[in-house]
């Protein structure tokens, strides 16, 4: 069973094969972005955004080509498909993190950015936590309704933080900033977003399993 999950993850990578050019230029784009802003944070969010885009692409390709039918002809249960897909998403996050760590050290040795190591790791972990909130909401939607029918909800979801940011008063922002600063400066608290990500994705995975179980294919 575990073996088949790994084979399924491999199948997901093969599904995305047609986008290989994009994935090849991503690190260079991230490099360019961080040079432009003189800031690693830009690279972090750029790469993490790419992992989200990747999972959307994966669902989109699989929907267009009726891959759900393929999955159910293979020795996979529906639950395997869902769990395998979440593991794939974790894989992309791990790959992005490794790429970013390499990138950050290059940037630092080249003297382009001047973050301490500590800050970089902290930013990366919080970045992963934030995108896992988005993933936790969008993946069950993709499993239930597909990418096409979820577009509107996803756009609203992505706009929500921006709107909240614009609506909140400057005083409120200052408080939020202070809270974020105090959390991010305390490295022992880093365990919170790490555990938080796993809890979020775990709950999301359980919801997806339920939704996918009753889907007509």
């Amino acid at each position: 069973m575990i073996r088949n999950l790994f084979i399924f993850i491999k199948l997901d990578f093969i599904t995305l094969k047609q986008n290989w050019k994009l994935y090849l230029v991503t690190p260079f784009l991230a490099f360019a972005v961080s040079c432009f802003f003189k800031d690693e944070l830009a690279a972090i969010y750029f790469c993490l955004y790419m992992t989200m885009y990747t999972s959307t692409q994966l669902f989109s390709i699989s929907e267009k080509n009726k891959l759900d039918t393929l999955y159910l002809t293979l020795s996979l249960s529906r639950q395997d498909v869902v769990i395998g897909r979440y593991l794939f998403i974790l894989c992309t996050q791990i790959i992005a993190s490794i790429a970013l760590t390499i990138l950050a050290s290059i940037l630092q040795t080249a003297g382009i950015t001047a973050f301490g190591d500590n800050t970089f790791i902290t930013q990366l972990i919080y970045g992963l936590f934030i995108i896992s909130i988005f993933s936790a909401i969008q993946i069950p939607l993709y499993f239930k309704r597909g990418v096409n029918k979820s577009k509107l909800i996803i756009i609203i979801l992505y706009m929500l933080p921006v709107v909240l940011f614009l609506l909140s008063s400057s005083q409120g922002l200052a408080i939020i900033n202070r809270i974020i600063d105090s959390i991010t400066n305390n490295s022992t608290l880093l365990i919170v977003p790490i555990i938080g990500e796993f809890i979020l994705l775990g709950i999301s995975c359980a919801v997806s399993c339920r939704l996918y179980r009753s889907k007509n294919i």
Partner: peptide, 29 residues
């Protein structure tokens, strides 16, 4: 899982990625 490993299926329309070559299909399944 055990049953499906022993079944060969052909449905009335294809269910592979359009951009896959026949070798990709082999890698995938």
């Amino acid at each position: 899982r055990e049953i499906k490993e022993r079944i060969g299926v052909v449905m009335d329309s294809p269910y592979y990625v359009d951009a896959w070559t026949m070798l990709d299909i082999e890698h995938a399944v």
